[in-house]
Amino acid sequence: MTVATAPESFDPMITPVEHVVTDVIPEIPDVVTLRMVPTTGDVAPFLPAQVSMVGAFGIGEAAISISSSPSERAYHEYTIRHAGAITSALTHLRRGDRLWTRGPFGRPWDLHPGGDLVIAAGGIGVAPLRSAILHTVEHRDLFGAVVLVVGARTSHDLLYRREYEAWRDAGIDVIATIDHDEAGWSGAVGFVPTVIGDLEFGADTRALICGPDIMMRRTADALVAAGVDPDRIQVTLERNMQCGTGRCGHCQLGGMLVCRDGPVADYPSVARALSIEEW
């Protein structure tokens, strides 16, 4: 998109960057992945768990994490669930439609090499983890054991299921679990924290968790009970974001401005905030 008055110093958090949708990939019901490229210039580099404000003309913006691989320089992918009017409109975009992003921004997952990795996702929470998963797939040798536990209500709600095979082939132990048993289901049944409770972890295990607040708390507690160092547990927070620049106040969670200090947080620093209702 053209910017009429060129600002002195271009800040991609303030001035939107026009993108075009190059592909719309239907995922599970109500969820699509939009693949997009900027109409001019390069695809912006980012780190796993980083977020952009994704906006469409006349619709508004929503904060969405980038779900493609950080090494993928040809496009960005955003997996979007139809929840509320803005994301609903975004899920109806088609190939060739223009939209914009402000970003990427936010604190990424700490993916320092070494040690075991446990990645726990609840429902759509696997989307903000996908770029981290793809990163470990590409750099499998940098980590010890890598286990991914994905939980969903039913087998039809398991996001990115078609990619499990490639992830397994790369040496990731993918455990998919659904809330209640279904005919023809051969995987795990039960909630993510329960599945985690049945696993064993080494002392150098690092954990990445994304899902609803309650799921993250229970999972973190299960990990701690299983001997994982609380300081090595990271969660990613989701709050209403408007500005993404730390100035509008909407994304507050206690002492945090999630857009400025998050979305990734060390679990001990947010455990209390997550446990207070309506905090």
Binding site: M1, A4, T15, P16, W100
Partner: peptide, 9 residues
């Protein structure tokens, strides 16, 4: 279909 942004001065 193209977008042109004019930031407020």
């Amino acid at each position: 279909g193209e977008l042109r942004v004019e930031p407020a001065p």
